[in-house]
Design a protein around this nucleic acid. Structure first.
Length: 159
DNA sequence: GCCAACGTTGGC
DNA sequence: GCCAACGTTGGC
């Protein structure tokens, strides 16, 4: 068994916010259509923690913490011709795209804005902050995760 | 296999 | 709405 890993998931809060995740409890993380992001989804294991990041909004930053509760399985939207995420090259025998299930763990008592992340020297290597980054799913180092969660007013060991 | 055109992401 | 950065597509 490998050690628990940490991730960052981007979501547009107008579409699906951290409050929405708390409301539904668990959400299938479908619709990812980038191979690099898909490969990260496939690397996720049950129990991995995720920073829930709000993007494309007036207040961008980390809003909460989630947990992977089901490892990668075929994304159902790729088979739905009516979905914008339909992929004609996918078949149930050879699915191209995957999703995981993510559950809410805790909202951050203090929202941690992107601007704030940029100002922390210890987070200079954070993948989210690298130039040109556009991935909606990306890995986070354990020490980065702990630092960000602490900035948000939570004790990492309590998660 | 190259590369221009186009589409998307996402901060500002 | 603008624009930088990146991914994908398709002609050759």
């Amino acid at each position: 068994m490998s050690a628990e890993a940490y991730w960052l998931l981007k979501s547009e809060p107008d579409v699906f916010s951290y409050a929405d995740l708390e409301r539904v409890g668990t959400e299938p993380w479908n619709g990812v259509r980038n191979y690099q992001a898909r490969n990260f989804l496939r690397a996720m294991q049950v129990g991995d923690r995720c920073l829930f990041y709000h993007s494309s909004t007036g207040r961008v930053g980390v809003a909460g913490v989630g947990r992977v509760v089901r490892a990668a399985y075929p994304d159902d939207l790729q088979f739905d011709p009516l979905s914008p995420y339909f992929d004609s090259k996918s078949t149930p025998e050879q699915p191209r795209w995957s999703m995981v299930d993510v559950a809410a763990v805790s909202a951050l008592p203090r929202f941690v804005a992107l601007e704030e992340l940029r100002a922390v020297p210890e987070l200079a290597q954070l993948r989210l902050l690298q130039k040109g980054n556009r991935l909606s799913v990306m890995p986070v180092r354990p020490e980065e995760f702990e630092l960000i969660v602490a900035l948000g007013g939570l004790h990492p060991e309590a998660l």
